[in-house]
């Protein structure tokens, strides 16, 4: 059975053991505060806290390469475009004649990049320490339809399978003489012959899967018993409410002149 698409990293840190909702709340609140915070220094403070938590969860070594791979190109593009063309640009920082980079735009780019870093690290903090199954289970125990849980779980398994069959189809079509390299037009023409067989076979499989699920009572609207009990504590519940309360506080502080 394929491992699925999840990037969950086994571990036994406090974050791994925490209830999925606690981590989910932490992620959402950290992102919100990152974007509410008014200046680069504050955003970096949020980022440092998140980095500390990633270290605590012992996933920092997996985090750094992935995060840099996403963040570096974005940051570079932000610095060039904003430094060059931001409407607030006044002071030349890096003179290059008509292509000069300006201080104001570079500051805008750095702030945006720091916020995106918060977004990336908060999200990875959740996905590295939480099994998607546990997150779905927690949501279903709070009243989300079990069908929704099925959709997410099933998608996480079908995606890698489909990517594998896509590779097989590519080899098969190449063996029949399909050109997948060369001019743009040539490559574009190869797109449908590569995609269509996969779509057709997955749609056919859909019907069988639906029948298999129905005979197992998937469509029945009966009470479902919990197979997994996710440990939750009073401390965590209090922590969640505390974290949630931070968001309106931060917004209020911004209106009260937090700079």
């Amino acid at each position: 059975m394929p491992r699925g698409l999840s990037i969950y990293a086994e571990g036994n840190s406090a974050l791994h053991r925490a209830h999925p909702f606690t981590k989910g709340t932490l992620t959402l609140v950290a992102i919100a505060i990152g974007f509410i915070a008014p200046s680069l220094a504050w955003v970096i403070a949020v980022a440092v806290i998140l980095l500390g938590l990633l270290t605590l969860a012992d996933v920092i070594r997996r985090f750094v390469p992935v995060a840099l791979g996403i963040l570096l190109p974005i940051t570079l593009l932000l610095l060039i475009v904003q430094g060059f063309a931001n409407p607030a640009n006044r002071t030349v920082f890096f003179p290059l004649g008509p292509l000069s980079l300006y201080r104001e735009g570079l500051a805008v780019a750095l702030l945006a990049a720091a916020r995106i870093f918060c977004l990336i690290s908060a999200t990875f903090l959740l996905s590295f320490t939480t099994r998607p199954a546990d997150l779905a289970e927690a949501m279903m125990q709070r009243g989300l339809s079990p069908r929704f849980g099925y959709v997410v779980q099933s998608a996480l398994q079908i995606i890698p399978q489909s990517l594998e069959s896509a590779a097989r189809i590519r080899d098969a079509q190449r063996a029949r003489g399909l050109e997948t390299e060369g001019s743009l037009l040539l490559r574009a023409r190869a797109y449908l012959p590569l995609l269509l067989p996969l779509v057709l076979s997955s749609l056919v499989a859909t019907q069988e899967r639906a029948m298999a699920l129905e005979v197992r009572g998937f469509g029945l609207s009966v009470h479902r018993y919990r197979r997994v009990v996710l440990p939750d504590t009073g401390v965590q519940r209090a922590l969640r409410w505390f974290l949630v309360a931070l968001v309106p506080l931060a917004i209020g502080a911004r209106f009260a002149g937090w700079r």
Binding site: V199, T206, A210
Partner: peptide
């Protein structure tokens, strides 16, 4: 059938 179609659509998005 409609529910089973959703993960398939998600996979088609990815592929």
């Amino acid at each position: 059938l409609g529910i089973v179609l959703i993960p398939v659509c998600i996979a088609i998005d990815w592929v």
